[in-house]
Amino acid sequence: MRKVVALGAFKGAPGVTTLAMALASAWPAEGSEGGVRPVVVEADMAGGDLAARFGLSDMEGLLALAAGGHRDGQDDELGGCVQEVAGGLRVVVAPTGGDQALASVGEVVARPSVLRGGGDSEGMVLLDLGRLGARPSRELARGADRLVLVSRGSVEALAHVAARGEWLDGASYELVVVGVCRFSEAEIAAALEMSPERVRKVPWDVRAAAALGGAGQVGRRRWVRSPLTQAASALAHHLDGGGGRGGQGGARGLGSELAQLRARALPGAVRARLGAPRALSSGGGAQ
């Protein structure tokens, strides 16, 4: 069966879809079972962007998958809903409309096997969940083999990660901080009470991001040297099982801005004793 890596954010638009596309482009060939390229499945309940970006039909993607339809007589439901974009990236696009997208995601939650396929299905699904704002997306996140939380690097954005809800208790996840961030990975990990090897910073590159969104082209040399694609390659190898990184030291001390996040990252047992009203008032409730 296919493996599933889910990506999502708690607030805003930190670049979840672009990161999923970057990972797909950088996924190690030796890590793809049978040489099968990863599939980016857009499952954002607010509606998808890839169909409009690449001029694709949103009737042949997640909507068809949720309805049990597939093209070209293929037995594999997911494979029958894949479309290719520039660069050979394989995508299953979500409906643009929010109502259709929400219904489609709900159907996939009810039949998660459509993502993994049967025993002879190979490859990796990169599941773009957009904002983790409601039960269907959170169920898909919890059911994935790996979960990647995506955030910007400001204190405000990291506060939403710190206030992660009880639905994540016991789950294993990575945090990817996209774009400018003046804090180190070790400082972020200490503030959020995470293992340092589970926090990664991914620099932003406007030109590379535009190319991944179908809005431009980047020469091979620029592509290879892009900090975004280099970081995506390292993250892809890590998620594929390449292990963590060495040399991650602990933070010597936390500034007041990050130190305040500790109070929001309360252990589940403490939240249970506080009760829902007090947890919500302190920022520790579900988003």
Rank of each mutant, 00 (worst) to 15 (best):
A251E: 09
A20C: 15
F183S: 11
A263R: 13
A110R: 15
E193T: 09
L140A: 01
G275L: 10
W27F: 11
V177T: 04
I188R: 03
L140F: 06
F10W: 09
A232F: 01
A103P: 01
R278S: 12
E122I: 00
L102R: 14
A24Y: 05
L258D: 09
A232R: 06
L78H: 07
G219C: 02
L115Y: 00
R116E: 07
S25Y: 09
L261H: 12
P267L: 06
W223S: 07
R2A: 03
V40H: 04
Q217D: 15
A64Y: 01
A265M: 13
G35W: 05
A86F: 07
Q230M: 11
S121C: 07
Q287E: 14
G253T: 11
G88V: 05
S25H: 09
L56N: 09
V109C: 00
E185A: 12
R198Y: 04
A159S: 15
V4M: 08
V105T: 02
A263D: 14
L19W: 04
A190Q: 13
Q248A: 13
A51V: 01
S104Y: 02
G244H: 07
D75T: 10
A66E: 10
D49V: 15
G68E: 03
A190G: 06
G88N: 05
A210N: 12
E33K: 13
D72E: 13
Q217P: 03
M59Q: 11
G118I: 02
H160M: 05
V155Q: 01
K11S: 13
E84I: 00
V270C: 08
L89Y: 05
V218E: 05
L132S: 01
A67D: 15
S154L: 02
G143M: 06
V178R: 14
G119L: 11
H237I: 06
L140E: 05
A6F: 02
S32C: 15
P112S: 04
P136F: 02
G119Q: 11
A210E: 14
S172I: 10
Q74H: 10
I188H: 07
S282F: 10
G79Q: 08
A144M: 07
L212P: 06
G253F: 10
D75Q: 14
R200K: 12
L235H: 03
M59D: 13
L266R: 14
R225P: 02
A269N: 13
R164A: 15
L280C: 09
K11D: 13
A191V: 08
S104I: 00
A110E: 06
D128I: 10
H160P: 08
L63C: 01
G284R: 13
D44K: 04
G133K: 03
L158N: 09
W223D: 08
E33F: 05
V270S: 15
D44E: 00
D72S: 10
A94E: 04
T18M: 04
G253V: 11
S113P: 04
A24Q: 08
D75A: 15
L65H: 12
S184D: 10
G283L: 07
E42S: 02
L56Y: 08
G48C: 04
L258Q: 09
A64K: 03
G283V: 09
A66C: 07
G118C: 01
G285F: 08
L158T: 11
G106L: 02
S32R: 10
